[in-house]
């Protein structure tokens, strides 16, 4: 299910390129090692501009999720209800994503998810797949 095309800019373009290759790419500071998101020109920890793009594993834990029941835009009227999720990846990175075709009543914050990708005509985006509550 597509919503709107993301706003891609000079900072975040490699992330969205990574999504097309079905990879979660983020910037890592070559000075202090901190991985950052949102994408930024320099490291908010140490202000170094020396940056490399690294690929994080396609899995994480569910920080939280919301079931959108009311459309906040006319074009969403036929898409509700849908789930917006926030997922903690490795290295302290948290992303916004969606979860489709899941049993909403089974979801629980802290549970495990895998990251897959949904390809649209002009871009791809990460989607979380529910793997179950952690014990």
């Amino acid at each position: 299910m597509d919503f709107f095309e993301p706003r891609i800019n000079a900072d975040n373009a490699p992330f969205w390129e990574g999504c097309k290759a079905h990879e979660l790419r983020f910037q890592r500071c070559k000075r202090c090692g901190k991985v950052r998101w949102p994408a930024a020109y320099l490291c908010p920890e140490c202000l170094s501009e020396d940056t490399e793009w690294v690929t994080l594993p396609n899995r994480g834990t569910l920080y939280s999720y919301v079931v959108m029941q009311k459309p906040f835009h006319p074009s969403l009227a036929e898409k509700v209800p849908y789930v917006i999720a926030e997922v903690d990846l490795a290295e302290g990175v948290r992303i916004t994503t969606n979860m489709f075709d899941c049993d909403v009543s089974a979801l629980k914050c802290g549970g495990e998810v895998a990251i897959d990708f949904l390809d649209s005509e002009t871009y791809s985006r990460p989607i979380a797949i529910w793997k179950g509550a952690s014990e």
Binding site: F4, E5, P6, N12, S64, T96
Partner: peptide
């Protein structure tokens, strides 16, 4: 009708969704 950031790509429109997440 155009996204102003990454979030519109996930249908994450509204302050309410963000408070609800917390």
């Amino acid at each position: 009708g155009k996204a102003t950031d990454d979030l519109a790509a996930f249908g994450d429109l509204s302050t309410m969704a963000k408070y609800s997440m917390q």
